[in-house]
Design a binder for these strands. Structure first.
Lengths: 135, 135
DNA sequence: GTAATCCTTGACGTCGGCGTCAAGGCAAGG
DNA sequence: CCTTGCCTTGACGCCGACGTCAAGGATTAC
């Protein structure tokens, strides 16, 4: 199949495929007329790439998986190098999620505080804090 | 004070300050010789910007806070526009953290599965799955 | 033959927030 | 006077993963 069909079947674009090839990730055979030619195996490699991309993996991080498949293994993650990428990614995710949780907490606290202060300002001077003050 | 001192006191660079000015975020007065001149208020504005940046806010998102301070309010988040930014950011964070959690779960599962399969491959053919098979 | 639809390579644009020169002006110490 | 160390503007570089356009060749449909 040619580049357009592969792109469509994988849900990506021809531009992306040419980019992958320029990075040495998904080289293509060439027909006599110079057109790129792909087969079903290439589709599988491409699907592996796209799956990992959707998970937020960098393009370079997908390379071990692609190499693994190309080496004849049943799955892209059947090789130690791929597992290492998984582990690194998990560690990165844990750090990132932790940071974002911390930020979320901080921003949430800031918002709560600022809303309280705004509340205290608006209704024409400081309000009574408690009914007991009426006594 | 001049740009170098302000940058140092705020823990940033002169390049960043010039960039903020180019974005209209932190304009500077000028001395007779053309040098940028800042005061303590500018330092406060800059600190507000940096705090939010550290939280992952875009520069544009810091603008309401800076405007709020410049309008004479005691805090950058004393204005409704700032609160809106807080709320939007919280919503964005929730979505992002949710996505990252989902990815973490998926990647974790993939890793566990791939490790199991690798385990089953290595020790020379499929291993006995259970001691009961010895009977 | 010609229009439509593929394909090719090459090259510049995008986005954010600056980093990093380059070329030159201004002020102060020795 | 000269050096040193600030400052000025301007402009290109960076990163990742492509988008988009340009100019032209190939194939197929009619």
């Amino acid at each position: 199949m040619r580049i357009g069909e592969l792109a469509e079947r994988a849900g990506t674009t021809t531009r992306a495929l040419r980019y992958y090839e320029s990075r040495g990730l998904l080289p293509a055979r060439r027909a006599v007329n110079g057109y790129r030619t792909y087969d079903e195996d290439d589709l599988r490699l491409l699907q592996q790439i796209r799956t990992l991309q959707d998970f937020g993996f960098d393009l370079e991080e997908t390379r071990p998986f692609v190499d693994c498949l190309r080496a004849g293994h049943p799955a892209g993650d059947s090789c130690p190098a791929s597992l290492e990428v998984y582990r690194r990614k998990l560690a990165e995710l844990d750090v990132l999620i932790g940071q974002l949780d911390a930020v979320r907490t901080q921003v949430g606290a800031q918002l709560a505080r600022a809303e309280l202060e705004a509340q205290a300002e608006l209704p024409g001077g400081p309000e009574p804090r408690c009914e007991l003050t009426d006594n």
